[in-house]
Write a protein that binds this DNA or RNA. Structure first.
Length: 713
DNA sequence: AGCCCTCGAGTTCC
DNA sequence: CTCGAGGGCT
């Protein structure tokens, strides 16, 4: 940003035509350069604010001298593209990630899990497919009536970026499918760059005085996310299909058959794809590909094994964000030795003091690593890490660097001082303590600690919480320093200061207006997100969602919280404080009555609400924000919203499968029978739970009736 | 009481 | 992604 922001701009209306033309040319060049840095190298050279300022200045000049506004001007091209940006695409079927296996043993466990879930014998045949896992980026191609209509990146799995124009420039991707293709077909695969093409691309980049790409994966990512498809067209990107999303008519009844059908339709399919009889052959294939890795010509980071039968895939379904019927069998990660230069302490939003290793820069698996988390004080002690040590570093799952151990010669290591973990917060100086039995040491400063205050606000605006765009850590910190921001409600007061913000260093009128819009867009927030955003201890995304769905809306939640605070029984005769806390915790959990919320979480909820300061913060926030009632799944099934209990042995499906099926139908599955149970499914040899259900007069059905419910939906 | 699984919290790279 | 903790099952 050198010069750009500091340059003193003359008012546009005082410029003569020649000066304006010169400045417009200079601005255009500067914007083009920034564009290249941002889009092609994924390495922005100037801040968004500075970029906005350049663009705004150029637009102002062009507005006064329209003849300077050529068709090629960045205000046209970038402006148009930026307005559209990359459109968001909602995936018809979510794009999931895969569970990882780091060893042969974990692949065998995967196979055992699958057999158990399907109620197969331990030695039953389990046909799998196995193929190399390419280190590129996932792409979903949607064809309607045989024509490519959209191409989207994975994004967060449910929503990705529309890169259709760029995908059309990739030679491996068919624009039209032959007759006979399904009316709707979503093909998923990987976009990547081969080693030779990567080397050539970097040579070309260097020849043009541009930055080299770090690795083929980043180069492919940067190339696909070009705003100008012409640039993508010049990059030799390749594509390999490995799966599918929505399909109007099934193409086969096995994974392998489906992939062959895609091949017949013109999609490139990996020549490493094979059908195997079971996990042992899959493991052998993994070993063979590890040996072939150096001669493949492109990066792979493991092998993917999938259950071949599609009817089994369907039964297995999904857990959290990954399918139960596939596993990524990773290759051993690359390791490297480097020097531990320092250990810094970071303070998180809960006050947790986290040690971070500062490392002498070292290339591991194609990326230069300089930092790595050390988790906590015990971890440092366990590995006996000392500043000055030579340490072994690897990138776990090829992403996050970790320090494995030190490899310093003993005499040298012994001479280094042991690391003394601070007992005071490095940010605010407050005492930092450890709860008995806990691994983390926490700053006790609470909101008086500037680090905690900032981290809590960062959490509030983060994508998974309230999701206010354009507010990063630095901007938040600046607002806090100005005294404009202390608690979440203050965020909604920022738009009142729009003109003041526009005048700040690094801001412009456009960026300030954009911020005001982003904030205004979040005056209605789904209750679950809002609850998560409050940052109550132990209440993360999932718990917040479960709780919000259970209570429904904000008044109901507030009533529950009030009731928790009101529940304050005195200790019984001779009851120790620990026992008392435990008993009350259990009582609170029972009051909440939501699966997954036990004594600890219930107590955290009460403690949060018992704090007058927190209630004020929430009241202040609700002056601006309307919580949207959590939408309750009202699926068309007879068990939606009901609590089910399975008992006895099910003959045709495992307990896990039954539970997953019930949850798909919107039911909740509990472990024990109580008055809250709506329906009991009794299998063979049902015992005490069935007796209790009969005593309580609950509805009880057998497995046949249960299957009928499943079949009816 | 002990085990397994899920969830929460913190972090890295770009 | 990993580790630790909480919750629920056996």
């Amino acid at each position: 940003m050198d010069g750009a922001a500091r340059r003193i701009d003359l008012p546009v209306d005082t410029l003569d035509h020649a000066t304006a033309a010169a400045e417009a040319a200079r601005l255009s060049a500067e914007i083009e350069r920034a564009n290249r840095a941002y889009y092609q190298e994924d390495a922005p050279e100037i801040s968004d604010a500075d970029y906005d300022a350049l663009l705004a200045r150029l637009a102002a000049i062009e507005a006064r001298f329209p003849d300077l506004a050529t068709a090629a001007s960045p205000t046209r091209r970038v402006g148009a593209a930026a307005a559209a940006g990359f459109r968001e695409v909602v995936h018809a079927r979510p794009m999931l990630s895969l569970d990882n296996a780091m060893s042969d043993g974990e692949v065998r466990e995967f196979a055992a899990r699958v057999r158990r879930f399907l109620s197969l014998a331990d030695d039953a045949a389990l046909p799998l497919t196995s193929e190399a896992k390419i280190d590129g980026l996932s792409l979903s191609l949607r064809y309607e009536g045989g024509a490519l209509v959209s191409a989207a990146t994975r994004g967060d799995g449910s929503r990705g970026e529309d890169v259709t124009a760029n995908a059309r420039t990739i030679a491996d991707i068919p624009h039209r499918l032959p007759a006979g293709a399904p009316a709707v077909l979503e093909v998923r695969g990987e976009v990547y760059l081969g080693w030779e093409d990567f080397t050539a691309l970097n040579a070309a980049q260097e020849a043009q005085g541009q930055k080299r790409f770090v690795n083929p994966r980043n180069a492919a990512a940067g190339s696909l996310r070009q705003l100008d498809p012409a640039v993508t067209a010049n990059r030799p990107l390749r594509f390999l299909a490995h799966g599918w999303g929505e399909v109007s008519a099934p193409l086969a009844d096995t994974q392998y058959g489906f992939m062959m059908a895609l091949k017949a339709l013109g999609f490139p399919v990996s020549d490493t794809l094979v059908q195997v009889e079971g996990e042992e052959q899959a493991i052998a294939h993994w070993a063979a590909l590890l040996a072939r890795r150096p001669s493949l010509g492109f990066d792979i980071d493991g092998v993917v094994h999938k259950v071949d039968r599609l009817d089994w895939q369907e039964r297995l379904g999904f857990v959290a964000r990954s399918p139960r019927w596939a596993i990524a069998h990773k290759f051993p990660p690359e390791q490297a030795l480097t020097r531990l230069v320092a250990i810094d302490i970071q303070v998180g939003r809960t006050g947790a003091l986290t040690p971070v290793a500062r490392l002498a820069p070292i290339s591991v698996g194609g990326v230069v690593v300089t930092n790595a988390t050390l988790h906590n004080e015990d971890e440092i002690a366990r590995k006996d890490l000392r500043v000055g040590d030579l340490v072994l570093v690897q990138r776990a799952g090829d992403v996050i660097p970790q320090v494995l151990c030190h490899r310093t010669p003993e005499a040298e290591h012994a001479a280094l001082p042991t690391f003394a973990f601070p007992d005071h917060c490095p940010e605010c100086g407050s005492l930092a303590t450890r709860e008995p039995g806990e691994a983390v040491r926490r700053c006790t400063g609470g909101l008086t600690c500037p680090a905690q205050r900032l981290e809590r606000l960062k959490h509030f605006v983060s994508r998974r919480a309230v999701d206010i765009e354009g507010l990063g850590g630095e901007r938040l910190a600046a607002f806090i320093a100005l005294g404009w921001l202390e608690r979440p409600g203050d965020l909604y007061r920022l738009p009142e200061r729009e003109t003041e913000i526009a005048a700040l260093d690094g801001w412009g009128r456009q960026s300030a207006a954009k911020l005001a819009i982003a904030i205004a867009a979040r005056r209605e927030v789904p209750l679950d997100r809002l609850l998560f955003a409050l940052g109550i201890r132990h209440v993360g995304e999932v718990t917040a969602r479960d709780l919000a769905r259970a209570v429904g809306d904000w008044p109901a939640l507030a009533a529950l919280l009030d009731a928790l605070v009101a529940h304050d029984p005195a200790p019984a005769e001779g009851e120790t404080p620990e026992r008392h806390a435990k008993r009350v915790g259990a009582e609170l959990a029972a009051m909440v009555g939501v699966a997954g919320i036990g004594p600890e979480v219930a107590t955290a909820l009460r403690d949060f609400w018992a704090e007058p300061h927190n209630r004020e913060t929430v009241a202040d926030l609700l002056g601006f924000v309307t919580p949207l009632p959590a939408r309750i799944e009202t699926r068309e099934s007879p068990v939606a919203g009901k609590t089910l209990v399975f008992t006895g042995t099910l003959e045709t499906m495992s307990r896990d499968e039954a539970k997953a099926a019930a949850e798909r139908l919107g039911a909740r599955v509990a472990g024990s029978v109580s008055a809250k149970t709506d329906l009991v499914i009794a299998g063979r040899d049902a015992g005490s739970k069935l007796r209790k259900a009969t005593e309580l007069g609950l509805e009880v059905i057998d497995e046949t009736a249960w299957r009928a419910i499943l079949a009816a939906v």
